[in-house]
Simulated scan of single mutants.
Amino acid sequence: MKSVCSFATELFKSRRVHCSAAVCRLQTDMCKELKTPVLRLLPPTCNGPSVENNLTDGAEILRCTVKALKEGRVVAVPTDTIYGLACLAQNSEAIRRTYDIKGRNGQKPLAICVGEIQDIYRYCKVKVKKELLGDLLPGPVTLVFERSDVLNADLNPFTSLVGVRIPGHAFMRRLCQMCGEPLALTSANISSQTSTVEVHEFQELWPKLAVVVDGGPIGGQSRLGSTVVDLSVLGKYRIIRPGCALASTVDVLERKYGLSVQLKE
């Protein structure tokens, strides 16, 4: 039996194609035909996936996805809540492309996704204890802080705030680590449509994407997305979106750290 950290790679095209050892070498004719590779991760065992010690196939998928991101392209990825579209947050053209693909209102923000808690301090002005970050992340929570000057000014230029995620998903964490910079992240669906928990549900977007990473059906398939909480005001919190982890998040904020609800102005 293969190790739980191994991945299988499959390329789905209009005709059957056998996977090569170098998955990340996207064929020129595929680009011309606007065929998008769908790279499938092996289902995790009860112990969960482990990317840190992955075998060749997993590394190929990661390298392929990183390559596409570094080229300024948009990819689809699994998270711990729903499927997402991702691009490099510091690449302004990639951000514009993401909005175009989704048909998203330009006044609606994109979150950023990083691999480690210490990365948050580079792109956000954090006003809570580091222990609080560790209690909520990685996990299905998006924390909103005041943005730092390091973050691309073209990302959400209409607000001084930014939401940041560290999904509890081994592939996503490793992807962020390998990119070495934040990913802009939004749900993988046409704007105003239902969030997706399987790749076939956003198949109409595939031709516009560089890579689709298929992690299989996601979690409890609640489609609620992450819980979004504003922590930009010292000692206060404000729930922006209840999401799938509201009760546990509020419990941590109030019981353990004594934060109070920020009243609406």
Score class of each variant (00 low, 15 high):
residue 232 S to P: 12
residue 81 T to V: 07
residue 214 D to L: 12
residue 63 R to S: 13
residue 132 L to C: 02
residue 36 T to A: 09
residue 121 Y to L: 05
residue 105 N to C: 13
residue 250 V to R: 09
residue 23 V to T: 14
residue 58 G to W: 09
residue 72 G to L: 01
residue 121 Y to W: 11
residue 123 Y to A: 01
residue 224 L to Q: 10
residue 216 G to P: 13
residue 131 E to T: 08
residue 124 C to M: 02
residue 243 G to L: 06
residue 261 V to W: 12
residue 152 N to V: 00
residue 17 V to W: 13
residue 148 S to I: 03
residue 42 L to D: 11
residue 179 C to R: 01
residue 7 F to T: 07
residue 27 Q to N: 14
residue 79 T to I: 00
residue 179 C to G: 02
residue 224 L to V: 10
residue 79 T to A: 00
residue 141 V to M: 07
residue 216 G to T: 05
residue 133 L to E: 01
residue 107 Q to E: 06
residue 186 T to W: 04
residue 46 C to Y: 14
residue 90 Q to I: 06
residue 257 Y to N: 08
residue 48 G to S: 07
residue 3 S to N: 12
residue 158 F to M: 06
residue 240 I to D: 05
residue 239 I to C: 10
residue 137 L to E: 02
residue 182 P to N: 04
residue 110 L to W: 00
residue 79 T to V: 00
residue 122 R to T: 12
residue 83 Y to R: 03
residue 211 V to K: 03
residue 219 G to I: 01
residue 62 L to Q: 07
residue 160 S to C: 13
residue 221 Q to F: 05
residue 35 K to A: 15
residue 77 V to D: 07
residue 18 H to A: 15
residue 132 L to T: 08
residue 186 T to D: 04
residue 250 V to N: 10
residue 89 A to C: 04
residue 25 R to N: 13
residue 229 V to F: 10
residue 165 R to S: 03
residue 180 G to S: 02
residue 246 L to M: 15
residue 139 G to V: 03
residue 130 K to L: 06
residue 176 C to F: 09
residue 85 L to R: 08
residue 65 T to M: 09
residue 68 A to S: 09
residue 260 S to Q: 14
residue 250 V to Q: 10
residue 181 E to K: 09
residue 17 V to S: 13
residue 80 D to L: 05
residue 95 I to C: 03
residue 264 K to D: 12
residue 209 L to M: 04
residue 205 L to K: 02
residue 13 K to T: 15
